[in-house]
Amino acid sequence: MNIDQLQQQYNEQRRQEKRKIFAFQFVILIGLLLLWEVTTHFRILDPLIFSSPRAVGSMFIAKISDGSLFPHIAITMFETVVGFILGTLFGTLLAISLWSSKTFADVMDPYLVVLNAMPKVAIGPIILVIFGPNMLAVLVMGVLISVIISTLVIFSAFQQVNENYVKVMQLFGASKYETFRHVILPASTPTIISTLKVNVGLSWVGVIVGEFLVSSSGLGYLIISGFQVFNFTLVFLALLIIIVLATIMYKGVEMIERKVLEKQ
């Protein structure tokens, strides 16, 4: 046996291993759907509450063909993406302002602790009253839920940058802005990106809760309206779409992360 053959053998083993894992994953998915279908078909689980894959599937096709589903998906996607970008952006800006003045950071400290501890969804009704029952209220909800935690995580990343890098900058007489641009920001980029990943999840929470409250459009609205008229097929449909979209977004951010970290 020569080295090339062994290498091929190794690769073949790896491929088989991967195929096996994928097969298991696929079987579990099909199994779960089957279990869901069978148990609701034979009324072991109440189909009124648990619907069924077939009912959800046919509702999906019906709602796609009459075009009534797409606007809801588009609205929720838009709100989530905007909420998540603004949440991270505001969080980063706030962290920068905390970093630029130690006094400001010390003064703000207890307020940030309180705001971070507070469950943001609890102030949903107040936001609804302030901004009115519209998309703005949903966006505010989506931003609010991620902004404080982003601020805290990014600020602590700024503080953990090796002080000797900062010393090198001081020795060249660098200004605070220059130190930030050449050292603090590039050194903290990995943390900012991983905050992005957390914020994808948080923004979905904020937006869905926002849509529950505002109750005029979006996937969160579909869930709440389906619930109110006991149409659980609609609830499951919206839920499955949210799961798929949230996963795609998360994977997207992960890809961006890999690209950025590769460059470093």
């Binding site: 000797n164 010393k167 090198v168 050449h182 590039p186 980029t189 470093q264």
Partner: peptide, 14 residues
């Protein structure tokens, strides 16, 4: 003034 530290502290992102 030129100052050299115990370690290089080159910026890994540059």
């Amino acid at each position: 003034i030129g100052y050299m530290l115990q370690q290089d502290f080159l910026f890994p992102w540059k």
